[in-house]
Nucleic acid binder design. Structure first.
Lengths: 148, 148
DNA sequence: ATTAGTGCAAAAGGTTTGCAGACCA
DNA sequence: TGGTCTGCAAACCTTTTGCACTAAT
């Protein structure tokens, strides 16, 4: 069963393309489809790999351009965890979440905490800010790595 | 009056250098001094500029190498706010803090909130993690920009 | 003396861009 | 048909690295 709390990003993309006089293309649709149906935090290379599994002729630049487009539209969020690769994750399709990152094995766990977000809004307000979005990353060691 | 809640990072650096058979150098001391006496979030180029104001012969690579060393020691923290430049900020000299970033004018405000950190630790524990450090950035609009 | 550090310039690695041709509306 | 999109390769930019030389211990 699909989650319909939010609009289908595919439809949002189509609407944006129509509204801005852009055009759809085989590659763009494939990249978007692979991206939207993925979980997690894909680098461009990882995404390209999955895309090429279905169509080997897709170029790297097209993936970069498509992800930039999706990020502009707000359908993809860029993240930099410090390994030198920009990673993208679907935004609209899922609840907002933050990240727990194991500095030993690199595992990434997502979480979401409403209390923290309330506090964030409060802190921001104290400084005169209205927050539109945030990024929070907790770095540490996961249970598995600690066991060793 | 100086703040002595934490050890002087200059002393920490000296100790590390001695312990690891490294050597001090005019450039390294200058870069560290400029960095430790700065506030905020300096890119390597900004740092280089300030360093060269005092000694024009310092090379860019030396700044990169020195900041990498300081980051290893734990005296500098790397931050990426998405403009393509890694920024460093002094760690030990100040209380830990997070960032409020105005997406309109780029202003960066620091803050610190103990309640949030307690919640972070709790959330991490639920996932089996022990947190060593974290990064939290709140993006939004500051009061000045909202007024316009 | 020995060994680490420096400056320069080249290399590396990720991302962007110019261009000619392909493709969608 | 006209304008957008694509793939390729070159260009770009930040950061890293090799090397010969300088300097600290």
């Amino acid at each position: 069963m699909k989650d319909h709390r939010h609009a289908d990003p595919r439809a949002t993309l189509k609407a944006y393309i129509a509204k801005h006089g852009l055009k759809t293309s085989r590659q763009r649709e494939l990249i978007a489809e692979v991206f939207f149906s993925s979980t997690g935090h894909l680098s461009v290379d990882e995404l390209l790999e999955r895309v090429r599994a279905q169509d080997a002729r897709v170029g790297q630049a097209t993936v970069y351009r498509t992800m930039k487009l999706l990020a502009e539209i707000g359908l993809a969020g860029a993240r930099q965890f410090g390994d030198g690769h920009t990673r993208y994750e679907p935004l609209q399709a899922a609840e907002h979440h933050d990240h727990l990152i194991c500095t030993s094995c690199g595992r990434i766990v997502e979480f979401h905490n409403t209390q923290i977000e309330e506090l964030q809004a409060r802190v921001a307000k104290q400084h005169g800010f209205v927050v539109t979005h945030h990024k929070m990353e907790l770095y540490g060691m996961c249970a598995d790595c600690r066991r060793k």
